[in-house]
Each structure stands twice: as C-alpha cells, then as structure tokens.
C-alpha cells in the first residue's frame, strides 16, 4: 500500500472524484495553476483544465456564493478557502444560504457543496492563520462538519463527503498536513460520515479529540502508559453529526473522560460533548469530565505553544480525573 501525507491524500481523493464525476469542480484562490498555497490541488489544473479547477478572484463570499449556485444547478463544487481564518467573508453565504437551502426549499434544493479549509495552529501563523472555528459551524444546523486527523481518514472521508448531498465543512489540520504520513489504499474507498474511531484502547480514561489534537492525545496516552495510566483515545472524525454511540461506549467502559480541542474553551465543541455525555451516562462517571483547550483569547503568535494543548497538559488533566 502506498504511504501518503494528508495533502497527498486530499489531492488523491479530489483526483479520483473528478475523474469519476464530471460535475465535480474545484474553485478558490490560487488553486489552479499554482495548485494551492498548501499544494492540495497541485496537478489537478493540468489534468482537468481551467474549467474544472478554477482560479477565482480574491473573494470568499463570491467563491461560496457561486459554488452554491453551481450546486443548485446540479454540479458538485468543492471550494477551497485558503485558510479557515479567511472563511468569514463567506460566513453569511455559508450560514444563511448554504446551510439553509434544503430547508427553505422544502427539500427541493439540496446544496452539495464541500468546503475544504485548513485549520489549526502551531505553524507560527498568529491569530489569522491558526484559528479553529468549528464550533461556529457545528452550531449551524444544515451543515455537516468533518475533521480528519490522518491521511487515511482524510481521503476516505473526503470521498464520502463528495458523494452525499448535504453541504460539508471539511477541516484539514494544517500543522500536520505533511507530518502525518500513513498507508492509504490506492483507488477509491469511503468512510462513513458520523463515525468516530477508537484509535487506542485503554481502561482508565477516555480522551476525545479530533483534527490536529488526535496526535497530541495519542502522545499523552503513550506517556500515560509508561506511568501506568491506561488511556483510550477516540478520534471523533465527524463533528456534526458526532458519533454519540462510540463516545458513550468508551466513556461507559472507562468511567472517565477528558475532551481536547485547540479552539477556545468557552462554548467550544467540548462543552457540547460533555453535556451530551452527562445527559446519557451520569451513572457511569467516576469523575467530572474535564477539558484541555485553547484559551478564551485570539490565537497568539509568540506564545502559541503556551496556548496549544500539549501531551503534558492532557496527561495532567487525565490524572486529575483519576485522582478525583
């Protein structure tokens, strides 16, 4: 089996789907000839031409708004927003239009647009090249939110997203775009949207993580193992709709849970997960569910590693639940 990094896996998925389905087009800033600032669409312009790999003017509202129009007409646009931080000029189009088209047309106009965008910090990007805005979009009914953590999932999930009919925000972890490398099957396969994966089994505490934080959770679990702490790591993979069954099964098994995300803490996705778990599994909990998150601040530049959750902070928090 070939090995790929996340960028290559994303590109592979796009290429497969564009070969298979004439209706799939890619559009965005610098995605064509240049192949995207992170090279995710590199080579696609040469293979599919300027009509299907579309360099757009610098206007995110235009990119998403016209993608919506294309989808209404029956195409399958896969717009790229260059950085998750620059999605906000398109916020209105995403929140008020894309996410609501199916609903406000009584089901007659589904809007299968898959928005790809790199998210997360740790690349010395400061507050405009580091944000993790998932909570805003999970809180937008009508939009699916998918956040893979590795190349295998990225390819299988992206293919799945392009083959279903709801709009998706597909968030790619840019810090590990190249660092995360793994075996990826050639050709097509899809992974079910809405399914989490237990990426490491354990018995003392469940760590819920996604995107760039999965590798941090795994590192904490490894450190924990050396110290006699057995940690189960669940990679949520899809944030909306999230996989409540896998989450509950794990938490019921371990009796403890810590949620990790790099987005700010207050009203972050962790708050939703904790609420949902305690509503359904109070009797199984040995300790309060805790969070390791970014700060309630914009994403910093020089102090980004103080801001970002790391394995020591995660393991320390797991210990707090064990010592409760």
């Amino acid at each position: 089996m070939p090995t790929m990094n996340i960028i290559e896996a994303v590109r592979d998925a796009l290429r497969i789907e564009m070969r298979r389905d004439q209706r799939v087009v890619v559009l965005g800033e610098d995605v064509g000839k240049f192949g995207g600032v992170f090279r995710a669409t590199s080579g696609l312009y040469d293979e599919f031409g300027a009509d299907r790999v579309i360099d757009t003017p610098l206007a995110e509202a235009g990119i998403i708004g016209t993608a919506i129009g294309m989808a209404l007409y029956g195409m399958r646009p896969v717009p790229e927003i260059q950085f998750g931080d620059f999605i906000f000029p398109a916020f209105d189009q995403i929140v008020n239009e894309l996410a609501k088209f199916r609903y406000r047309s009584g089901g007659q106009y589904p809007c299968p647009v898959v928005i790809r965008t790199p998210v997360g910090g740790g690349i010395r990007g400061g507050h405009y090249h580091s944000q993790s805005p998932e909570a805003l979009f999970i809180h937008t009914p009508g939009l699916k939110v998918v956040a893979p953590s590795n190349p295998y999932d990225a390819k299988g999930l992206l293919l799945a997203c392009m083959r279903q009919n709801d709009p998706v925000l597909f968030m790619e972890p840019k810090r590990i775009y190249r660092a995360s490398r793994g075996e990826v099957p050639e050709g097509e396969y899809t992974l079910e949207i809405g399914k989490a994966a237990v990426v490491r089994e354990g018995t003392h505490c469940t760590l819920l993580a996604y995107s760039g934080m999965v590798s941090i959770a795994e590192e904490a679990a490894k450190k924990g193992e050396a110290e006699g702490v057995s940690i189960e790591v669940v990679d949520l993979r899809t944030l909306m709709p999230y996989d409540i069954d896998t989450i509950l099964a794990s938490v019921k098994k371990t009796g403890r849970c810590v949620v990790v995300h790099e987005a700010p803490r207050t009203c972050g996705f962790g708050a939703e997960l904790i609420a949902a778990i305690q509503e359904r599994a109070m009797d199984h909990l040995e300790a309060p569910i805790l969070r390791v998150t970014g700060f309630d601040t914009p994403f910093p530049y020089t102090l980004e590693h103080e801001y970002l959750p790391n394995a020591d902070r995660v393991l320390g928090t797991v210990r707090q639940t064990l010592e409760w």
Partner: peptide, 16 residues
C-alpha cells in the same frame, strides 16, 4: 521578532 519589546506583545505575525 514578536518579543517583549514588541508594542503589540507578540500577538501577530511579522509585518503588522
């Protein structure tokens, strides 16, 4: 450099 001498306290990338 985004260090303690930065009047904006190291909050942003260079060139701000």
């Amino acid at each position: 450099f985004g260090n303690a001498l930065d009047p904006t306290k190291g909050r942003q990338m260079p060139c701000h």
